[in-house]
Design a protein around this nucleic acid. Structure first.
Lengths: 69, 69
DNA sequence: CGGCAATATTCCCGTTCGGGAATATGGATA
DNA sequence: TATCCATATTCCCGAACGGGAATATTGCCG
């Protein structure tokens, strides 16, 4: 899936989470963040902290690749 | 290039910028951010805002893909 | 439809992001 | 060595992030 903005990243994260049948609460616990951050990240809030977002991807067993547009 | 954390994303961004022979100042102007943000992003500051970082990637003609780890 | 689980919103609050300017530092070149 | 350009650091300050709790809303299933 292509990530062009925070909305699409949030969607990808939500999809992955649901695929793994994990609740937002569990994901927060597993990744050492708060529930509030997960909710906002999944809804595409552009001011979420980059490092935290990348940490969530790791917790979901995902990573990002940079490609030319 | 794989992105696992903010450091590797910063590196990727710096590499792309240099490949395009663009200064940090020019990139800031081109993407509507401040110089300070570019410097911090390239140095891997994990608390940079996600949306701004994704905007810089766009300005560099890049995008991200989500892949399984 | 009622009940329950999941998600979203709101609140309080301490910490800090980032714009932009000024200045310090580093690297390359003549 | 001096100069110049690029990057990094520091400063001020208003806006806001995010933890965690409480509460409201939504969706699903029996």
């Amino acid at each position: 899936m292509d990530i062009m903005d925070s909305k699409s990243l949030g969607e990808a994260i939500r999809m992955a989470r649901k695929r793994l049948k994990v609740t937002q609460k569990d994901l927060a616990l597993a990744s050492g963040t708060g529930l509030r951050f997960i909710i906002e990240l999944e809804r595409g809030k552009p001011t979420c902290h980059l490092g935290k977002a990348l940490g969530i991807l790791q917790a979901l067993g995902l990573r990002l690749k940079v490609v030319e547009s």
